[in-house]
Simulated scan of single mutants.
Amino acid sequence: MPKTRQELFDCLDALGIAHPTTDHAPVFTVAESQSLRDQIPGGHTKNLFLKDKKGAYFLVTLEENAEVNLKSIHTLIGASGRVSFGKPEALMDKLGVTPGSVTIFCAINDPDHDVTIVIDAPLMDNDIINAHPLINDATTSIGREDLMRFLSHTGHEPLILKVSG
Rank of each mutant, 00 (worst) to 15 (best):
P20D: 07
T22H: 15
D23T: 10
D23P: 06
A25H: 07
A25C: 01
F28A: 08
F28V: 03
V30H: 01
S33N: 09
L36N: 07
R37F: 13
R37P: 02
D38W: 06
I40Y: 12
G43V: 08
G43I: 07
H44F: 08
T45I: 06
K46S: 08
K51I: 12
K51C: 14
A56C: 09
Y57E: 01
Y57R: 01
L62Y: 00
E64T: 00
E64A: 08
A66H: 04
E67D: 12
E67P: 00
V68P: 00
N69D: 14
N69G: 02
S72R: 11
S72T: 15
H74S: 08
T75G: 09
T75N: 12
L76Y: 07
G78V: 04
G78H: 11
G81C: 11
R82M: 10
V83M: 09
F85Q: 06
G86S: 05
P88S: 06
T98L: 14
P99N: 08
V102T: 03
T103M: 02
C106Y: 06
D110H: 06
D110S: 05
T116M: 11
I119W: 14
A121M: 10
L123S: 05
L123Y: 12
M124D: 01
D127L: 09
D127V: 05
D127Q: 11
N130Q: 08
N130F: 12
A131E: 09
P133V: 05
I135W: 14
D137E: 14
D137C: 07
S141L: 04
S141P: 10
